[in-house]
Computed example of a mutant assay.
Amino acid sequence: MKLKLNELEVFVAVAESNSFNLAAERLDIAGSVVSRSIKKLERDLETTLFNRTTRSVTLTTEGAWLIDKARHISEEVVAIEHHFSQKHKQPQGTLTVDAASSFALHAIVPLLSEFTRLFPDVKVALVSNDSITDLIERKVDVAIRVGQLSDSTLKARKLGVVQRGLYASPSYLKRFDYPDCVTQLSKHQCLGFDKYKYLNTWPLMDDTGKRLSITPQVSSNSGETLKQMAVNGLGIVCLSNFTVQQELESGSLKPVLKSLWVSENIPINAVFYSEQSLSPRVRVFIDFLVGKIKLM
C-alpha cells in the first residue's frame, strides 16, 4: 500500500466541507475525481472514512483518527512548495474578505487605499456580513470574527481585543439627565439589538452582582443603525469602542457610566483555512492588518 498526497488532500477537503461537491469546487476538480479518490483511499486503507447519506457526509471513527494527521501532512507539503516556488512571487489575484459591517467600515476600509498601493495586483472584494460565514460555501479567503472561535478547522491570527461601552448624545443626556448608577438606566431609553440578543447584555453589573441585561425600547439588527439612533438623541447604546471614535472626537456621543464599565477583552481574529495560510495574497493581507490595526 502506498498513499498519495493528492488523495489525502481530497480527503481533507471533503472532511472540512462535509460535502463531495463543495470539496470539488474548493479543489477546482470534477466531482467524479473526488469520489474516485476517496473510494481508492478507503480501498487502500481497507476502511470506511465517511458516513454518507443523501443529506450529509460525516467522518467515521477511522476518518476522525486520520483527519489531523492528513491535515498536518498537507500543511507541511504546502509549506515546502511555498518555500521553493512562492516566496519570490508577487501576491496577485482576487482576495475575498468577509467582515461584520461595523468592522469593515471603521477598521478595514480606512486601510484599503494603502494596501492596494502596496499590492496593486491584489483585487480586494470586501463583503460586509453580520452573521457567521461558512468560508467554503461563500468562497471567502479571510473572515474577521469577533468573539471566541469554535471552529477547529480554521487557522487564526489575532488582531487584538475590543471593549464595549455605553454612549449617548449630549442632547439626550440634557433632556433625561445623566444616570448616576446602573439602576437609573431603568428610567432611560435603551437601544439594543433585535437579532443578536446576546449583545443586549451590557458591560455593567446589576445590583445582584450579575451582568446587566436590558430590554431595548428601540432595536435594530445593525450596530451602525443603533449608533445613528444614539447620535440623534434617541437613547443610550452599547457599542464596541472602535466604532465610535469619530463621534467621541466630534462630541456627538458621550460615554455613560464609564467608571462602572466591566472590561470584556473581546478577541477579534482573522480566520482562514489551513492550506490557505501560506497563499501570498492571504498572507500579506493578514500581516498588513496585524501591523496596522490597533485594537484595545
Rank of each mutant, 00 (worst) to 15 (best):
E9F: 01
V14N: 01
A15E: 10
S17H: 03
S17I: 05
S17C: 10
L22H: 01
S35D: 08
R36S: 08
S37I: 05
K40F: 05
R43C: 00
R43P: 00
R43K: 13
E46S: 09
E46C: 03
I67T: 10
I73G: 04
A79W: 01
H83P: 03
K87M: 02
H88F: 01
L95R: 04
V97D: 06
S102C: 05
F103R: 08
A104I: 12
T116M: 08
V124Q: 13
I132S: 14
D134C: 07
E137F: 01
K139R: 00
G147L: 10
L154M: 13
K158V: 07
G160R: 09
V161F: 15
L166C: 10
L173S: 08
K174E: 06
F176P: 02
V182E: 05
K187C: 08
C190Y: 12
G192K: 04
D194Y: 08
K195R: 10
T201G: 00
S213N: 04
P216G: 00
N221L: 08
K227P: 02
A230G: 07
G233D: 10
L239N: 09
V244Y: 13
Q246C: 02
S263T: 14
E264Y: 12
I266G: 07
I266Q: 10
I268Q: 03
R281T: 12
I286E: 00
F288G: 01
K294G: 05
